[in-house]
C-alpha cells in the first residue's frame, strides 16, 4: 500500500510527539497533545475540510501512555486513519484506548523501572569517584533509548500499521516483552537493594569473657554479626519494611515517609545507632 505520509511528515509528527506532554492536564491528560501531534498527518490524509474537522475532534479525548508507547500509537493511529473506510473511524479510538494501557506498562517497566536505574547506578558509581565520565555515559546511554526508541516506535507503528496488531495478536509480543522486562527489572531492583541502600551500625556489644571474668573486656561489632548472617541484610530489612508500609497505605504517603526517615536517621545518629 502506498503511504500518504512522507518522511518529512513523520519528522513533523516526531517533533510534535516530543512536545506532547507539555499540554498535560487533569481533564484529558495528554488528549490535547495527541490531537496536536496527529493534526499535520490528518491534514495530509483528509483534503476535505469536513472530514478533517471530524478527525481532529475524534482525537481530542482522554489519552495517556508512556512516551515510547505514545510514539507507537501515534504512528499506528496515522496508519489507521489512512487505511480505514469512513464508517469504521470510531474503531480507531477503541484501538488507541486498548493499546495505551499495555504500552504504558511496557514502556514504564523497560525504561523507567529498568533502564534508568541501570544507567543511573552506573553513572553514579563513576561520579562518586569524581569522574565526569559518569554523567556523560549516563546521558548517552539513557538518551539512546529515549530518543531512538521514540523515533523508531513512531516509524514502525506507521509502517507496520494494522500488521502490527495482527502480528501482536498472533505472537502476543507486547505481553511477552512486558513479562521479560518485569523479570529483568526486578532482578535489577534486587541488586540495587544491596548496592544502593547503605545501612550499617557502629554499635558494639560487650560480651562476658570466661577467661577474665570481666564484663566489657571483649566487644563484638554488631555490624560484623549482621554481615555474617547475610551481607546487606539491614538494607534488605529496611526495604521490606518500607515496602510493607507503602503497600498498606497504597503508596500515597511516600513523600511523608521520606521526611520521617530523615528525622529518624538523625535521632538514631544522636544515639549512635547508625
Amino acid at each position: 500500500m502506498e503511504h500518504k505520509l512522507k518522511q518529512k511528515d513523520l519528522w513533523t509528527m516526531f517533533w510534535r510527539l516530543n512536545t506532547m506532554r507539555i499540554t498535560l492536564n487533569y481533564e484529558t491528560l495528554q488528549g490535547v497533545g495527541f490531537m496536536r501531534a496527529i493534526a499535520p498527518a490528518l491534514a495530509k490524509i483528509y483534503p476535505n475540510e469536513a472530514d478533517l474537522k471530524d478527525a481532529l475532534k475524534r482525537h481530542l479525548v482522554f489519552y495517556n501512555s508512556h512516551v515510547i508507547g505514545d510514539a507507537a500509537i501515534l504512528g499506528l493511529t496515522a496508519a489507521m486513519e489512512e487505511s480505514t473506510p469512513p464508517d469504521e473511524k470510531e474503531g480507531i479510538n477503541a484501538l488507541k484506548t486498548g493499546l495505551m494501557g499495555p504500552l504504558a506498562g511496557l514502556g514504564d517497566s523497560l525504561v523507567k523501572f529498568t533502564w534508568v536505574p541501570i544507567v543511573g547506578s552506573i553513572g553514579a558509581s563513576l561520579a562518586f569517584s569524581g569522574s565526569i565520565v559518569g554523567p556523560i555515559l549516563m546521558f548517552v546511554l539513557y538518551n539512546i533509548v529515549n530518543i531512538f526508541g521514540r523515533y523508531y516506535a513512531l516509524v514502525y507503528g506507521y509502517k507496520a500499521g494494522i500488521d502490527f496488531l495482527n502480528k501482536n495478536q498472533k505472537t502476543n509480543a507486547i505481553q511477552r516483552i512486558s513479562t521479560m522486562a518485569n523479570v529483568v527489572g526486578l532482578m535489577v531492583v534486587g541488586a540495587l537493594i544491596a548496592t544502593v541502600i547503605k545501612v550499617s551500625t557502629p554499635v558494639k556489644i560487650a560480651v562476658h569473657s570466661n577467661l577474665t571474668g570481666k564484663v566489657g573486656g571483649n566487644t563484638i561489632a554488631l555490624q560484623a554479626m549482621f554481615d555474617k548472617i547475610m551481607p546487606s541484610v539491614l538494607s534488605l530489612l529496611v526495604t521490606i519494611v518500607v515496602y510493607l508500609i507503602l503497600k498498606k497505605t497504597n503508596g500515597k504517603h511516600a513523600a511523608m515517609l521520606i521526611i520521617i526517615m530523615m528525622i529518624l536517621t538523625v535521632f538514631l545518629k544522636y544515639f549512635g545507632i547508625v
Binding site: 523501572f113 526486578l186 531492583v189 507503602l246
Partner: peptide, 17 residues
C-alpha cells in the same frame, strides 16, 4: 539518610513490578 532514602524509591518500584 541520603543512603537510606533510596529504599522508598526502590519499594515504589517493587510495588508496581
Amino acid at each position: 539518610s541520603g543512603s537510606i532514602i533510596p529504599a522508598v524509591g526502590i519499594a515504589l518500584l517493587m510495588m508496581s513490578m
